[in-house]
Design a protein around this nucleic acid. Structure first.
Lengths: 168, 168
DNA sequence: CGAGCAGAAGTGCATCATGCACACTTGATG
DNA sequence: CATCAAGTGTGCATGATGCACTTCTGCTCG
């Protein structure tokens, strides 16, 4: 199967996959505890990478800075991140996920993995492993072209103590 | 690898995958010829399934009807679909992709598959085939749970002649 | 044949994610 | 200490979607 033929197949499957928006994006975790999709992604990133500043979000996601100003201030209001001074000095602030943020993230993730586990319930273990490896390779190859890698540590990164930003 | 463990890995990869929004959603086809994402999905579905009515879209995608009235009227204005009477009679109208719609869809799809082909350029042919098969199985298994299958004919479906809807 | 009904289409208002342009703030530096 | 660049925040715009409501259309029954 050549690359072009494969690309057509992948294009179709990804088109279909993105229609199932409720799987990768959390819905249905009720009780006022829902994170919106953007918040979920941001918290996941903070969990994976440790404290980040708005310019780092811009670099990591390729979106406008105002997007992150809004998202972080929403998360701040909910107490899911805290704003700290950048230990390196400078104007930028770092956002750090809080204990509550980690908790809410875990709740949401469990809701989603419950659904996904059902999807692959009948798959042979080896095929599951292979699928994840292929997905991972696919993501890595995209990142190779876009230069926007998602941090891939297998153990959560230590989250250094930081000085809270006392201002406004 | 058990289903729960697999689900966690898949959850992460899908989270990352959905961040690469420019791959499954077309951007960068310039010249006033761009289809927006929703239009692209709708045209793809019409291409795969043949003429559909708004209630059929609602059933197929699980979104509100108003979403499709807006999307179809946008595509109508651009001449990419045409509104026809339902041969079965009744109040509903069927939307049918036009030649121009097929052409624009092909242009957009080519732009996307070009990018995807680059992503998997270095993959062994067998791995490409396997990845598509796994993606397809994954989508099918989701559809098994959501009861919203994407039509999977390997040859484009004949598009019957239909009476245009002459009204407003 | 005309009235009514059920289903479909369309519209107004709301929300969320995002972009862009601009104004404001802050820390570093001469 | 004054200035400047970098970072932050805000107002306005768009696209996708939902919900509630209105309008339209074709079928059916009296």
């Amino acid at each position: 199967m050549d690359a072009r033929e494969a690309a057509e197949g992948i294009e179709r499957e990804l088109l279909i996959l993105t229609r199932h928006r409720d799987l990768p994006s959390p819905r249905g975790v009720h009780g006022g505890d829902e994170l919106d999709r953007s918040g979920y992604v941001l918290l996941s990133r903070l969990e994976a990478q440790g404290p980040m500043s708005v310019p780092e979000f811009v670099e990591a996601f390729g979106l406008a800075a105002s997007t992150f100003t809004r998202q972080t201030s929403a998360l701040l209001r909910q107490g899911l991140v805290e704003r700290t001074l950048d230990p390196a000095g400078g104007v930028a602030r770092k956002y750090r996920i809080t204990e509550e943020g980690l908790r809410r993230l875990a709740v949401q993730r469990t809701a989603m993995t419950d659904g996904l586990a059902e999807v692959v319930a009948d798959w042979p273990p080896e095929r599951r492993r292979r699928f994840i490896a292929d997905l991972r390779q696919f993501n890595s190859d995209i990142e190779r072209l876009t230069h926007r890698p998602w941090p891939r540590t297998d153990s959560p990164r230590p989250c250094p103590v930081a000085v809270p930003d006392e201002l406004s």
